[in-house]
Amino acid sequence: MRWIWIDRFKELIKGTSARAIKNVTLAEDHLHDHFPGFPVMPASLMLEGMAQTGGILLGDLHDFEHVVILAKVPKVTYHSWAVPGDTLVYDAKLLDERAEGGTVEVIASVGERLVAEAEIVFVHLDDKDPELGGIDQKNFVFSMNLMGVMEVGKAGAAAPETGQSGNA
């Protein structure tokens, strides 16, 4: 399994906000166990997608020079659930940012329905940090092809709109 819990990055306003989407599908194995006969997106994975959205927002601010680590979730509230066929929209807003790290607020919704809201704290670690010893990747959070979501849809974006409606 690839640890990428957003499907596409929709919008990024540097240092301000970011929006990404996650389509929930029955092709995801875990939905058959969570729960049998009642498939819903696990709250923890929703939080991961919210953190990935907010983490990219924060990382982008410094051009991904810092190692960004999810440190703490001071607040998270789930209001409803997301089921196969739903498109979760993650809207992240940068609340605070400084040399040591940053805080984002992320709201998850499906259409008009509020699904979850969270506040997430990230820390920046230096490559020199002894606690990081041995990590030689440029960046930790943004490894594993997560940054590929920034490119999703770009190749198709050049296709004329009319071509798509003609096939419908």
Binding site: A71, K72, D96, E100, G101, V121, V123
Partner: peptide
Amino acid sequence: IDFLDIVF
């Protein structure tokens, strides 16, 4: 980690 949260 909490120290950063407290400072914010």
